[in-house]
Every structure is written in structure tokens, then in C-alpha cells.
């Protein structure tokens, strides 16, 4: 049986989502995505800067990828909803990663506004993947309002600090039925593998790949790590002996009864 990740109406073979930000040269994007074997790729929507208009990043994303526009720049639910609608009208499909950040110091997501935006967009038929601080009740609410997955952060955006929120993310994995995609903070392939071994359904990696000396090779390395972590999770990590037999017996009384 193929091990596929089901999100919205799509079945994915790849569990590594990649981003297109922070590349030194946009020409590296297509090859990096190919090396990372990603099927879901994120990008952002920005006002055009007339002085130095950039190339449309979509031209660099392989055509068979699912586009996942994020709502970065949004500080409120309203703004996030607006960005999502624009992205859809622009032909990006109906997937959206809700990212509402009103804190400029740590760039942590605003969970409440994120829930609001998720509810509105899910009702409009979007496949909504909200980016949140890992909090169980927030994740439950997202589940109720129709999110397609939950994307908890592993550490603040771009920090490359790894799975700092591991115990909180583990709780989401255990308690939430929706796919859990660990987003933000993963700095090394080993950390991606750690998230996958623990049972995360996918990870989203951007900074660590885009800012590597060689993004293409790093994309490949992450793909291998995600696959390894996933396989280990499916295989069931080996029994770690938890019990020592030296402690005083607790069930001795049962044998006395038999004797």
C-alpha cells in the first residue's frame, strides 16, 4: 500500500514542502525543488516595487507542484482573507497557508486571528493550512472550523533552531486527526527526520535549504531525511526496555493465591 499524504483533495507522495523565499538566485529554485522532490511549494504575494520589479516566482515553480501561497504580511484575519482571495483570483488554485503575524520582534503567529481567517476561507472552499504556535485547544478549534491540516512551528521563523516545541507538537500529533505539518524552525535534515520519526505528517522547510551553500544538494538531503524519518515512524521504532526487573514484585499476591 502506498504511503500517501492526503490533504484536501490531493494525494501527495512527498512529505517535504518547500518554500521559495531567501534564495540568492531565483534560477536555483526549479532545480532545488526537483532535488527536494517537493510537490507542495509556497510563495508570497507582495506589492510590486516599481523601481526594481522582480520576476514572478511562479515562473520558477515546476508546473506539477501544488502552489501554496502564504498570507505573509497579513496582521489580521481580514488581511489574510483578502490575500487568499487575491491569490486564488490570480490562478494559484485554492490552497492557502494562513500566516498572520502581528508581532514584529519574534514573528510569532497570532493564533486567534488565524482561526478566524481559517473559518472564513474554509467556508469559501479553500484548502486552508494554518500556521500556528502549537497549542492543543487552538488546533482543536482549527479542526472544528474546517482546516485541512495544522502547521505548528518548530521554532520561530527563520531561526533554524530545530524542533524546540517538540513536546507541544507531539501532543498535536497525538490528539489531532488532521495532518500535522511542522513548519518553521527546522534547520537541519536531522531535525526534519526527528519530526517525522515522531509522527509528523510532513514538514515545511525553506530557510535551511534556500540559505545553504548549495541549496540543490541540501534539498536532496532534506528529502532523504524526511523519507528516512517517515519510514522509521511507519516501521515502529524498536522496543526500548522500560522496565527493570529488580524492583519489588507487585503481583506476587496472585501467585500466593494459586499456591
Amino acid at each position: 500500500m502506498a504511503d500517501r499524504l492526503l490533504i484536501g483533495d490531493k494525494e501527495l507522495d512527498s512529505r517535504l514542502f518547500t518554500g521559495t523565499g531567501k534564495f540568492a538566485n531565483q534560477n536555483l529554485i526549479p532545480e532545488t525543488i526537483k532535488a527536494a522532490r517537493s510537490q507542495v511549494v509556497t510563495m508570497a504575494l507582495r506589492r510590486v516595487n516599481f523601481d526594481s520589479p522582480q520576476q514572478n516566482v511562479i515562473n520558477y515553480i515546476p508546473e506539477d507542484c501544488v502552489l501554496l501561497p502564504n498570507t505573509s504580511g497579513a496582521r489580521t484575519a481580514e488581511e489574510a482573507v483578502r490575500i487568499a482571495r487575491i491569490a486564488e483570483a490570480a490562478g494559484c488554485g485554492n490552497w492557502v497557508k494562513i500566516e498572520v503575524v502581528s508581532d514584529n520582534k519574534y514573528l510569532l503567529p497570532d493564533n486567534q486571528e488565524t482561526i478566524k481567517a481559517t473559518e472564513i476561507l474554509a467556508k469559501e472552499g479553500f484548502v486552508v493550512l494554518p500556521y500556528v504556535s502549537p497549542d492543543l485547544m487552538v488546533a482543536k478549534r482549527l479542526e472544528e472550523v474546517g482546516a485541512a491540516a495544522v502547521m505548528p512551528l518548530g521554532a520561530p521563523i527563520g531561526s533554524n533552531r530545530g524542533l524546540k516545541t517538540k513536546e507541544m507538537v507531539r501532543i498535536l500529533i497525538e490528539e489531532i486527526e488532521l495532518p500535522i505539518v511542522v513548519d518553521a524552525g527546522i534547520g537541519k535534515p536531522s531535525q526534519a527526520a526527528e519530526a517525522m520519526e515522531m509522527g509528523a505528517d510532513a514538514v515545511l522547510v525553506n530557510t535551511a535549504i534556500a540559505t545553504a551553500k548549495d541549496p540543490v544538494v541540501m534539498g536532496d538531503a532534506f528529502a532523504a531525511a524526511v523519507e528516512a524519518g517517515r519510514k522509521a515512524y511507519l516501521a515502529g521504532t524498536g522496543a526500548v526496555k522500560k522496565y527493570a526487573s529488580a524492583s519489588s514484585p507487585l503481583t506476587g499476591f496472585l501467585k500466593e493465591d494459586q499456591g
Partner: peptide, 9 residues
């Protein structure tokens, strides 16, 4: 007037 730019996490 907007355009799609690189973005990720």
C-alpha cells in the same frame, strides 16, 4: 499591483 515573490516559512 502585486506579484508573487519567494516565500516560505
Amino acid at each position: 499591483i502585486l506579484n508573487f515573490v519567494g516565500g516560505g516559512e
